[in-house]
């Protein structure tokens, strides 16, 4: 079993999609109460990593392992991973026409209650609280999941789901993209509210913008399927100033391209 502080660990994982390797040996350890950020240019494999960790069948994990609070992630399917406490906020959330947000979340909460319907007793109240937290109009409860939502509304709904499901480990894939500054602040404060000393958050982002509001403990730079540099929050500032080019260059030199 794992060390008490560690809640999420990834060891040397490789991911293939459509026959192409896009994550090429990546390791990461996150302790309880920490927030980490993975930053990297477009196409570096960030979303592929996130999808593979959440259990998308199209993303094949060819080697490596991952543990969530001591449980072997790759022995579980997507459903079981969610029930074990993993949450993924999608970069591109899917629409489920005809299924209301309230009905969807009720089903999701029931799914993790092992048939104990009493968990639904406070459902309505909880949901309304979360709508307030994310400053979303309550009519969204009766709208169909992501159906006709704007980009920003979809991102808010992802964080609202996270707040309702209260995961142990949340991977947030480009949750900041497509948000204007006000929305970014609201969404960030939502994330900060959910974050606690018992859970962990892994932000996946292209820009460091969100890191002004959700302060990470550690930053990892991902290029071409690998983490090429890790450091403290100062790394984000550096990246903002210099872009990925400096790191890319030194990485390219290292691997001799």
């Amino acid at each position: 079993m794992s060390d008490k502080r560690e809640i999420f660990s990834i060891k040397d994982i490789h991911v293939k999609v459509e026959g192409k390797e896009v994550v090429k040996g990546l390791s990461l350890e996150i302790n309880r109460g920490e927030k980490h950020a993975i930053m990297g240019p477009n196409g570096s494999g960030k979303s592929s990593l996130a999808q593979a960790l959440a259990g998308h069948p199209g993303y094949e994990i060819t080697s490596g392992e991952a543990f969530l609070d001591g449980k072997n992630l790759f022995e579980m399917d997507a459903t079981e991973r969610s029930l074990a406490g993993l949450f993924l906020a999608f970069q591109y959330p899917y629409a489920i026409p005809g299924v209301t947000v309230a009905n969807f979340l009720r089903t999701a909460i029931k799914a993790r209650a092992n048939g104990d319907e009493s968990v639904l007793r406070n459902f309505r109240k909880d949901l309304m609280e979360k709508f307030e937290l994310l400053q979303m109009d309550k009519v969204f409860a009766t709208r169909y999941v992501n159906d006709g939502f704007s980009g920003g509304e979809k991102k808010r709904l992802e964080i609202l789901q996270m707040a309702m499901l209260n995961p142990k480990v949340a991977i947030l894939d480009e949750t900041d993209s497509g948000l204007d500054i006000d929305a970014l602040k609201i969404v960030s404060s939502g994330i900060n509210t959910v974050a606690s000393s018992d859970n962990a958050i892994l932000l996946v982002t292209h820009y460091q913008r969100i890191l002004n509001y959700v302060k990470p403990d550690k930053i990892h730079v991902m290029i071409d399927g690998k983490i090429v540099e890790s450091g403290g929050p100062e790394l984000a500032i550096q990246l903002e100033e210099q872009g990925y080019d400096r790191i890319k260059r030194s990485f390219d030199e290292k691997v001799g391209i």
């Binding site: 959440a54 259990g55 998308h56 069948p57 399917d77 997507a78 459903t79 991973r81 969610s82 029930l83 949450f87 993924l88 999608f90 959330p93 899917y94 489920i96 299924v99 009905n103 969807f104 089903t107 999701a108 799914a111 993790r112 789901q161 499901l165």
Partner: peptide, 17 residues
């Protein structure tokens, strides 16, 4: 997959859709 990542089984997800 989206629904399963929220804890629904594949059958529950299909039924909801």
């Amino acid at each position: 997959f989206y629904l399963m990542s929220r804890g629904l089984t594949e059958d529950e997800a299909r039924l909801l859709i």
